[in-house]
Amino acid sequence: MLPSGWEVTTAVLLAIISFPVSLVLTRFFMQVNARRGIFGIDVHKLSKPRIPEMCGAAIPVTLILLSSIYVLIGGGNSIMMLAFSLVVGSAAVVGAVDDRLKMRGIYKPLLTLLCGLPIVALGLLFPNQVYNPTLQVPIFGSFHLPVIYPLSIPVAISVTSNTTNMLDPLNGTMAGGVSIISAALLIGVLITAPAPSAVFLYACLLFSALGFFYFNRYPSRAFAGNVGQLSVGAALGALAILSRTEIASIVAMFPNIQNSFFFLSKIKRFTEHRALTAKPTKLLDDGRLASSSDPKAPLTLVRTLLVGRPAKESEIVSTIFALFLVSAALALITMILIG
């Protein structure tokens, strides 16, 4: 048996390959989707450029491909990798269907509930190999949740995937935010309990998100689409459960939680941004973004950051990344407190 340090090093080195793979796949999807006329409009630019959509498919494809290779070389827990791949793959399918068919807002949370079922099913078939129903709490120890924990897994996957889906209004916010979250949780796992499979999956998510971010950063040349957003969110949720970083993951996703909570508390239903009659922000004649003065508009994170101070899109993106750095630092402290 290989020493643990060597296993962890191998896991990180293999995961780094996901960066060029994701980069090449994003480029591939940009060309293919542009040829097929799959475009989105960048509404926060005065010129309203048409950008290839659904290029975020590169991330789930990279994650599933690299997880399979990792299992084939005998590097990780194959049941855990299977559970992760099924969750990410099924969320990507839900996202792709939504991208093409434009489903009503309620269907995404309902269908992504089903994406968590592979973890529950495999956990019941292979006890203690997929998830551990004892929740680790900072400072106060832990508590056992044999009934509630498995029941909450589908809800957790649905929440993480949809909240990630909702915080991608500006160029690069989803990919950049997820890169910061996964980097912090990867460091936390390496410091506290460096299980090779968890290290590999977090590193894979980090580098595949960075590969996509290269084309998605301001000014975007590729849009993720629901296929990318839902699958990346599902990957975060699945990793929280599989690597026992539940509470730290909630902390790292504070910007997402705030955005989704204030959106839902104002609109009071699950709906798509495109279906909103009152938009949270408006584009000024000089190209800057401003907070909407419409009282019916949702209080999204971007709108909150624009209150009383119109700003360029790039400035808002930088501010959102600063918020993710704050929440990522708190998540890291949480993991250290858990030990």
């Binding site: 950051l305 209150v307 101070r309 400035e315 808002i316």
Partner: peptide, 8 residues
């Protein structure tokens, strides 16, 4: 980098 320091 044009951060909104007050908001942060």
């Amino acid at each position: 980098m044009g951060l909104n320091h007050r908001a942060v």
